[in-house]
Simulated assay, not measured.
Amino acid sequence: MRELTYYVALSLDGFIASPGGEFDAFLAEGDHMGPLWERYRGTAPTALARSVGLEVEDGPFDTVVMGWNTYGVGLPDHHLADPYQHLRQIVFTRSHVAPAGSDGVTFTDADPVETVRALKQEEGRGIWLCGGGALAAELADEIDRLALKINPVLLGGGVPLFGQRPYAPSAWTREHTRAFESGVVLAEYARS
């Protein structure tokens, strides 16, 4: 069965984006970049990765799921209506319509839990939960793995890692931790 991995950057105080949805406070350069790409190849927009010579094929995921706010980061200024062309892309939204140029993206108002459960039953590689926090809160019980790129920055507010998830403790097992000179720490967990 396929697994859902929440692979995301976050601040020391647990935010994945600023109050306005930006994530430019996170480190985009440093000794962490190469090893993270090697481990999670294909987790950058196709055109961006190829423009800097990064291969997107043969990564751990063949499907990416995200909420509208995460998807919308690439619109309109960045012209990324079809960001992960090398992956099957599913965007959950209840009120937005597909923008021009998004032919490779599936937009749905279907229940995220039911959708992910169905995806897990299909053949293929892993499923990447790209964001955001509200969707992660809805899918918390379906997430099999956490891969957290903890950045050495405090945001003081913004989009929490798991949105407004109600109090519901669940145990996780640390599988791997790697600290980089940049200050970024990759912490990987599996559901216990």
Rank of each mutant, 00 (worst) to 15 (best):
D77A: 13
G156S: 14
W128Y: 13
R2K: 13
H79F: 09
S102C: 08
A136S: 10
M1G: 09
Y6S: 07
R94I: 01
A44N: 11
V91D: 01
A171F: 08
E188K: 04
R165G: 15
V113L: 03
M1A: 14
T177I: 09
V105M: 07
S102N: 13
A100R: 12
R178E: 15
G132Q: 03
S95Q: 12
A137N: 01
D77N: 11
G14R: 06
P160Y: 04
Q164H: 12
L154G: 12
P83D: 04
V153H: 07
V97E: 11
D58N: 14
R88E: 05
E3V: 11
A190S: 14
Q89N: 03
E29T: 10
V184F: 03
R178M: 08
F107H: 00
L146G: 02
N151W: 05
L4E: 09
G163I: 06
P152G: 07
D58K: 15
P35Q: 04
I16R: 03
D109R: 08
G124A: 14
S182C: 04
D109M: 05
R145V: 12
I127L: 15
V65Q: 01
A98S: 12
P35C: 08
G72M: 07
E138I: 10
R178N: 10
A136D: 06
E57A: 11
E175Y: 02
D24Q: 06
T108V: 05
N151P: 15
R88I: 02
A47T: 13
L129Y: 15
H176Q: 13
A44C: 09
E123S: 15
L146A: 00
G21S: 02
W37P: 08
E188Y: 07
R94H: 06
A49G: 01
D31S: 05
C130I: 11
G21D: 00
A187D: 09
P35L: 04
G30I: 07
H79K: 11
P45L: 01
V91P: 01
H79S: 12
D77I: 12
Q85Y: 00
Y7R: 14
G34D: 09
K120M: 12
W68T: 05
F92Q: 10
A179H: 11
P83E: 01
A187N: 14
G131L: 12
T43I: 02
R41D: 03
V52P: 00
A9H: 13
E22C: 02
G101Y: 08
V56C: 04
S95I: 11
P19Y: 03
